[in-house]
Structures are given as C-alpha cells and as structure tokens.
Design a binder for these strands. Structure first.
Lengths: 196, 196, 196, 196
DNA sequence: AATGAATGAGGTTTCATTCAT
DNA sequence: GATGAATGAAACCTCATTCAT
C-alpha cells in the first residue's frame, strides 16, 4: 500500500518521459497516444486517466521542462559583482544544461515556437517562468551596463540567441567542450546586449 | 483561349499559395489536403498529380519561399563603402520584406525549425540558398570588421537574431515603422557581429 | 451479463464470417473493408483492431478454412483394411464437405491460386496443414498400392483433381447426389494414383 | 503512311505485353492502368483509346493467350494411330509450351479461375477455343479407349490435371527436362482418363 | 487507479477514366 | 491516333478518446 510518497505517480512520469523522446524523435503529430502508452508500458486508458487530452501531455511536458530549466538557472545565480562575469556564468550554465540534456534541448529547439503548444501556455512560460531573465535585464539597464533598448526586444533577442547557440552545439556535438566556441557564443550574446 | 503561357502550371502555384495560407493559419497537421485543393480550386487528384505527398507540398513551399527571400536579398545588395551602413541597409531590407509579406514571415517563424520539413531540405536551404550570407560574413571577417568567430556559429547567430527580430515585429505590428525599435534591432545584431 | 466465454472474440469471428461471404460474392478487391465491418456489425476501427491489414483478413481466413477442412478430414479417417475403399470414403467425405459448405467451397475455387493470398501463407497451408495427405500418399506408396511417382507431383495432382471435382459439382449442383458422377469423380482420381 | 500492314497496332501489342507481365507479377488489382501504360511506353490516353476498360485488357489478354495455346496444340496434332502415343505427344507439347512461356504459364495458373475475368469470356474460352480437347475426348470414348465417364467431368479433370502439372513444373523449374517427372505427369493424367 | 477492446470521423492517397489539345 | 493533365469517388487505414470491467 504505502508506495513511496511520490508526488507524481511513477506511471505519469513514465508517460511524460516517453512523450518527450517520441515527440523529439517523430514530432508531435506523428506520435500517437497509443505509441506513448506502449513505450511507457501502460495501457491507453491509463494515459487518458492522467492526461485528459493529447495536448495536455504536450503542455504539461513543455511547462515541466521550462520549469526545470528555470530552476536550474535560478539556483545557479551567484553574484560576484562584475556583471559581465555573472552573465557569462549564467550563459555557460545554460549551455551546460542543454548539452547535458540532449533530449530536452532538442525539445526546446523544435517546440519553443511551435503551434502544437497552446499560446497561453507558451506565454506563461515566457513571462512567469523566465521572469528572472527579465529581472536581470532590467537591473543591467538601470546600472547602465546593458544597452538601453526596449526590454521586450532584448528578451526576444536573448531567447533567439540562446536557441541559435544550442542549435549550433547540437549540430556540432564535438565542439561542446571547445573553449573557443563556448566563449565565442557568449561574446556574440554579450556584445549584443551590453551598452557600448 | 489565350491561356497565359504559364511556365509553372497555374494550378501548381495555386496549390502552393493555398497551402501557405492554410499552413500558417491552421498548422500543418490541422490542414487537410482536401482543404488545400478546395481553396486552390482544384480537385484532390490534381493536387496529388503535382505533389506525390502532402509533405512534398511543405518541402517545396519551404524551398520556394526561402529562395524568394534569398533572391530579394541578393538583388538588394548595393555597396556604399561603409560596411556598417551596408549591413544596416540589408538588415532593414530583410525586416521590410518580412513585414511586407506577413504570411511568409509567419511561415518562417512557425516552420523554420519544425519537424514537418525534411532535415535534408532544411539543410539545403541553409547552405545553398542562404549562401550569400556566408559570403558576406567571410568578407567582413577578412576586412577585420566582423568578429573573428567561427563562421558557422556566426551564421547560426545571424539566423537566430533575424527570427527573433521578426517575431518581435510580428507580436508588435504597430512598431514596424518605429525608428527606435527598427534601429535597436539592427544595433543588437550588429554589435554581436562586429569586431570590437 | 453472461457473455459467452468466447475464446476467440465474437467480433473477430463475425468479421471472418462476413469476409468469407463477401469475398466469394464480390471478389477480394470489390469488397471494401467498410462493407465487411458493416456486415459483421462492427465499426471499421474494430476491424483494424483485430486485423492490421485487409490482406491479413484474407490470409487468416484462408488458413482457418484450410485448417477446418483438414480437421474434418483427419477426423473422418477410419481404416477398413482395403485401401481403395478407405480412399473412396475419404474422397467422398471431401466432396461432401465441399457440397455442405458451398461458401467455403467457392472460396477454395476462387482463391486457392490467387495472388490475394501471400505466397508464404499458401505454402504453409499446403505443407503443414495438409500434411495428412502427404502421410497417406507415403503409406500407399510403401504398400505398393499407390504408383511410385514423385510425392510432390502426386500431392499437386491430388489437389488439382480435387479442385476440378468440386468445380464440376459447383457448376452442376443437381448432380451432387448422383451416384454415377460421384463415383466417376473418384475413379478418375484413383486410377491416376494407384499402381497399375 | 503505309505503316507495315500490322493487323494489331504495335502500341496495342505493347500494352498487352506489359499487362501480361504486370498482372503476373503484381496481380490484376495491384496493377494500375498508369503502370501498364508506362511500361508499354505509351500515354494513359492511348491505353484507353485501344481498350475502353481495364477489364477489357484482361479479357482480351486471356482470350489471346488461350487462343495462342489452342493454335499451338491444334497445329501439333499428328496422329500415329496409337491413341496413347498421340495423347502423350499432345500432353508433352502442352507442358513444353508452358515451360517455354513462363509468363503465360503463370498467367494461366493465376487467372484460369479468377473472378477478374468475365464469366462469359471464360466460358467462351473453355468451349470454343478448347473445343479440340472435347473432340478428342469424344473420339477416345467412342473407340473405347477413354473411360466412359461424363464428358464434362472428363474435361474439367483434364484442365485440373494440366494446371496441377504446370504448377509443379513452375515450382520446380530444374525438373522441367527430367524424363521421370515428365513421364510421371503424363502417366497420372492418362491413367485417370483411359478405360481400364 | 488500471486496462484494452471498441468506436467512427476523418485523413491521405490511389486510380480508372475523360477530354482538350 | 496520341497525349497527359485533370478529375473526384472511393479505398484503406489511423487515432484520439470512451467505457465496461
């Protein structure tokens, strides 16, 4: 009876895990609920017991991965005073995370702008979950370190450059540890953002 | 009688046009081949006479739009001597094109990284069609004007920033003519690329 | 409540039954999966839940009927000592079976050599299911009662003559009980097989 | 203008040839008119100019091959007085023909009893074209050499044994020249037919 | 909570046939 | 006679979802 007090059922997690790898490998629409259930080792009925809808799987998956990423980032923040150094640390942590989690990284690349995720959900992820990025940008601007461009434009640019960077390291996995490329990817980002 | 001397069948083009607007409006999978044919004013059989597969429509559409964009850009290149000015002109032309072609812009945003387009096709678009960007980058590097970062990384970053910019102007259409934002979007891009 | 303890789902059997009569009446290709499902009183989805493919229906149907025939024959074998009498009994039992099961008989005639059944399946039916015929032929040869011809040739000839006989009785149903024709059909067969 | 006075157009014959090999290789229904036209090197329109219907191709093909076979047989008849020898000669000629024309032989095996050929056409082939077999049987019966069984039954049995024989030699091509098997196949047939 | 047989609307694709050139 | 683009009905099959157990 007293199964470990798992807040999320084993089966539910198994379903999310299977969905992640199948969505990445085959795409959202080419993945049937039946195949997710089979891969997860549960019955179709069980799947729909946990997720009323196929889209719910996608939305929950998207939120949970974005949240996991945000948590990882927030926990990594440690100020040293020099804002460029701080930014570099954060950027490298973000790349590290992506390289360490290839599946989730590919998921980002494919679905960050896809129509398969509800607009509301994507908006929620952007604003509330990635809110810490907004905060950092605001602080940088007030200190005159980050360029005085419209904040929304800066945020979008941030996101765009991050996706570009991890796409590059995805296509060239052997460069994941290369100092030159890692450093260059940050420099590109930072030069764009910083006040001249 | 006097049917225009169509080099590409009228019907084939009509199918591509319909597919573009439907894919953007409803998404690839929510668009049935039947609805494409109906919108194009042809029979389903005709659609499959020109495109063996629904995916072929998508791939050809992607290539033709990328090509159209590349042609537009290449024709817009005019040197004035100052490379930053040249770059700015190009960048603004690219944004103009996106704003003038909302459907194709939205198509880019949704499908540039989607699994609905064959990997080979996307690769082809990047390398052969957008080759002129690569050329520009190489020249800039040789003249010491563009930062000495790995070219592939620079290209990917370029692409990422462009997508971010048009995404911003899509979400905020009223800012499409705003000098401040247009200028800022170029500055972000340029600061990233240029040698410091 | 008390659903019969069906070993093979009722629905699956209903599908096979409907397929049998439709395939015989209209031919394999003129029979749509939709019509099979409708006749069987199930949804199309149910049909494909049990048989992944329309061809699978055909193959399973073929095997099950051949098996049913083989079972009937094996159960009918009863030796009296005189081998010709035994053979006659078997032959008449086989004709009886065909006449009693007009649908299955017609199915044999139409599909025994059709390309609508996988080669592998037809081969399986010939060798493993109709193995008892092979056994009988071998015994007869060893006792010097059946002609010393290559066994494979004998088996094929057996099959061919049986099909010819039931085709004759199908085309002339009123002769099904006629002693002269029934006897002649056996004589033809037996004279071919027996050692002279 | 004065193209060689070919009674049958080259193209029409090309269509029949292509149909023969495709029907044998893929089956009637799995063969599209488009593929027949392509293989024959003509346009679809041309195909339908010569054959109003796909079924017409099949029917004409069936008749022409049966006729060709009948012609070959009739031309081969040469009496020597001994009826068994005559029958043997004919039988071996028939087998020879089948072995020399593997495609047409396979066509016989697949379609001799198929529903893809109109009943009327099959009946016509059986009665008028194969009429010479009927004649031979009648003569043999009157001379007391062939068993006094109902003629229709004898004809059907003949046909059945012939199909069985060529199926055997199809499945075992290396035995096509083997005296033992060739002789045995005739013996089986002849023992069945002859008066005891 | 878990199962998996059942559903049926809807999707993509095929194909015999037509017809204007 | 020859061509091949165009047609549209109809086929096979998929799949998200339900529900009785």
């Amino acid at each position: 009876m007293n199964n470990a007090p798992n807040s999320i059922t084993d089966k539910k997690q198994a379903i999310l895990d299977s969905a992640l790898s199948l969505f990445v490998e085959k795409g959202f629409n080419a993945t049937s609920t039946a195949s997710i259930a089979k891969t997860a080792g549960v019955a179709t009925g069980t799947l729909f017991h946990h997720f009323p809808t196929k889209n719910d799987i996608m939305n929950q998956l998207f939120l949970s991965i974005k949240q996991e990423f945000a948590n990882h980032m927030v926990n990594s923040i440690e100020r040293c005073g020099d804002i460029e150094t701080d930014a570099n640390n954060l950027w490298q942590k973000a790349i590290d995370w992506a390289i360490a989690q290839p599946l989730k990284q590919l998921f980002f690349l494919q679905y960050s702008m896809s129509a398969d995720i509800d607009t509301a959900v994507r908006k929620q992820a952007m604003t509330s979950i990635l809110g810490f990025v907004v905060d950092l940008i605001e602080q940088g601007k007030q200190q005159g370190i980050i360029a005085d461009f419209p904040s929304e434009l800066l945020l979008e640019n941030c996101h765009g450059q991050y996706l570009a960077a991890i796409r590059f390291f995805t296509d060239n996995p052997h460069l994941g540890d290369d100092k030159i490329h890692r450093n260059a990817s940050f420099k590109l980002f930072w030069h764009a953002m910083k006040a001249q």
